[in-house]
Nucleic acid binder design. Sequence first.
DNA 1: CTGTCAGGCAAGCTTCTACTTGCCTATTGT
DNA 2: ACAATAGGCAAGTAGAAGCTTGCCTGACAG
Lengths: 90, 90
Amino acid sequence: MGDVFKALADPTRRAILDELQERTGQTLFELCARLISKHGVSSSRQAVSQHLDVLEAAGLVRTRREGRYKFHDLDTSPLRTITDRWRIDS
Amino acid sequence: MGDVFKALADPTRRAILDELQERTGQTLFELCARLISKHGVSSSRQAVSQHLDVLEAAGLVRTRREGRYKFHDLDTSPLRTITDRWRIDS
DNA sequence: CTGTCAGGCAAGCTTCTACTTGCCTATTGT
DNA sequence: ACAATAGGCAAGTAGAAGCTTGCCTGACAG
């Protein structure tokens, strides 16, 4: 479980998390299509794939393989490392 | 109020937030000394100053000037943009 | 007034990061 | 079997980020 903070630093990766929160279990191609149409993000398939690697290394995305499909699920629990670190004032 | 996520991406900046949480209202030189002794971070004065600029742009640090001193105070409220964005599972 | 201390500004350098490009593997449908 | 689909690997590139270096400004003490 690598650097959660670094994973959140990129706007495209945050859009991916947004998209996975709205609909979990998407494939790479599904994500690419929806990022363009719903989030105005125009990234190539390889770029999104590399972003997913970073998110997975940070523990924010879990994957499961079925045949030729690879589904991506959101896992927000690593975000606790942020909220637990600093006392957040109202 | 710029990019909170980008501000958190750097380990030295996170150490600065840690240090300011432990003792708020520190000056630049104070921070440099305590970062070295308590956090094992060896950054030059200019480096720390630039980090503080980023943190201030993100709204995580507020400053007040008194004479030749400039005090830095922690403000964690921008962290809500993170916790409010994604539903955090237990 | 002069020296010292706290901080600021800006150019240059180096490393990292995001992205592209090109090709490859594996699974599924016809 | 063959083509199409879903995804992976790796080298190369452009730009951003972090840091250094050198000099400058402003405040206070003697």
